[in-house]
Amino acid sequence: MRNLLAVIDKEMKVYFASPVAYGVLTVFLLVSGYFFYNILTVFIQRSMMMAVQAQQFGGGAPAMDVPALVERNFFGIVSTIILFMVPMITMATFADERRRATIELLLTSPLTHFELILGKFLAAMGFFVVMLLPTLVYHAFLYLYSSPKMALQPVLSGYLGLLLLGAALISLGIFISTLTESQMVAASVTFGVLLILWVIDLSAQAAGPLVQEILGYVSILNHFDDFSKGVVDSSSLVVYLSFVFLGLFLTYRSIESWRWRT
């Protein structure tokens, strides 16, 4: 536990000493803010148009839950933006320790591999949470101006989904970072793999029902949809947690294999 905290603490210091961290935070804030604003205006316009149409053609205005639609689309967009951010968060975790030979310090200290990997994973999650925190303001804003007051459950489940998705992608990124000494290579490969996951997700949507079902299960992005609708599905939870476990397990094996590789 003491070791775990030491690793997390050190990782956080290293994160926030790097200009990359501030770049990632800024870009995420700007891009997510831009999309939130866009989505919001689009749906407000649409609902106003529908209200106008309803007046012209008579009959009551059809119910349009603007906040729910905004939330759902916003979480969908954010889950995609994350694909671009996670490689930056994880690229240095092990690659840079190898480049600067600090891995020799870590692996010759009385620190288990488990503590090291978990510490790095939790620190990356910590950074991820810091990155998401400012977006809470958007929801608060929506909540304040919504009438009747919007449901908060989709926001909570949306963030839970983001955390799970983030954890899955981060564990994958950390694994890839053990495979090279170059942060750039780690970032590129991670990004490539995440793009493939994204493509799987898109093709699953376009494919026939059977393929859709199979791909849909594999595609971790697909499982995110439920969360953004306010549904916490236990099978999605299991998929994400297994993915995290797999990523960290591969990381463990990869570190073991450095030592045995001849």
């Binding site: 050190k10 210091k13 290293v14 000493a17 790097s18 600067r100 030979a101 600090t102 891995i103 020799e104 310090l105 010759t108 200290s109 009385p110």
Partner: peptide, 17 residues
């Protein structure tokens, strides 16, 4: 590991700390 102090060929330092 508890009993060894090790200075590798390249000192294992974190420049930003």
């Amino acid at each position: 590991k508890r009993r060894i102090g090790y200075l590798p060929e390249h000192p294992p330092l974190y420049d930003e700390m």
